[in-house]
């Protein structure tokens, strides 16, 4: 270990930032492995987990069950993460506090993190690229209607109130979209296929 201290942005680490990120990432990984803080297996597992295991499908299953089971809906909107763990046993219900906010015919909810990229990753996976951009983060809190119309072709009627959740703490938000009409005969599994990632952020409506 080094006893060097670097506390300002003028440190050499900043000059490192001009190097090839692939080489920088490999160099950091190899030092962390050598120091016993990480393993090659853990790196592979992190990548596989976010590519294959954690994604919007978990949220979609929770939404579909909430549409078909009023008791579950109650649990989902009161203790979000525990209810989500019911539909996917791989979800760690001690990893985040989740609040699920319901869209209604006259209220639409939209989630953003203006300060960084806070997102209910345990339920929806890592955020899509657009969610992390200054373009989204800047505009979602003041001009959400225009943003949704122009960028997502989501047109809210004037009498639908839009409520924006700026997710700035470890309490994370997910939107429970409205169930689309004409879906009474669909199974829970078929309903889950209708639920998009963007509808659970509030960028789209399913009705």
């Amino acid at each position: 270990m080094s006893d060097h201290h670097h506390t300002t942005d003028a440190s050499t680490a900043d000059r490192l930032r001009d190097h090839d990120p692939e080489a920088r990432a490999r160099a950091l990984q190899s030092l962390l492995i050598e120091k016993g803080l990480l393993s090659a297996e853990a790196v592979d597992d992190v990548i596989a987990t976010y590519e294959d295991d954690i994604g919007p499908l978990t949220g979609a299953k929770a939404v579909a069950r909430a549409w078909t089971d009023p008791d579950y809906r109650e649990r989902l909107t009161s203790d979000g993460i525990e209810a989500v763990a019911e539909v996917n046993a791989d979800v760690n219900d001690e990893v985040m506090e989740l609040r699920v906010v319901e869209n209604t015919p006259d209220t639409h909810n939209l989630v953003v993190c203006t300060l960084c990229s806070c997102y209910p990753w345990a339920v929806l996976g890592l955020p899509p690229t657009w969610y992390k951009t200054p373009a989204y983060r800047s505009r979602a809190v003041d001009k959400p209607r225009a943003l949704l119309a122009e960028e997502f072709d989501t047109h809210l009627d004037d009498d639908v109130e839009i409520q924006v959740w700026d997710s700035n703490s470890e309490i994370r938000y997910m939107v429970l979209p409205q169930r689309p009409p004409g879906t009474a005969d669909l199974s829970e599994g078929e309903l889950a296929e209708l639920v998009t990632r963007n509808s659970m952020i509030g960028a789209e409506r399913l009705v």
């Binding site: 270990m1 680490a13 090839d20 692939e22 030092l31 393993s39 090659a40 297996e41």
Partner: peptide, 29 residues
């Protein structure tokens, strides 16, 4: 103080030059 800056720079340069390989043993899962 967990990673030495000079060592990180050296290792980065080694990977850029194709002269380093990732270790496959190591720490926690």
């Amino acid at each position: 103080g967990v990673v030495d800056e000079a060592e990180l720079k050296e290792r980065t340069a080694a990977f850029e030059a194709g002269e380093a390989e990732l270790p496959d043993d190591g720490g926690p899962s």
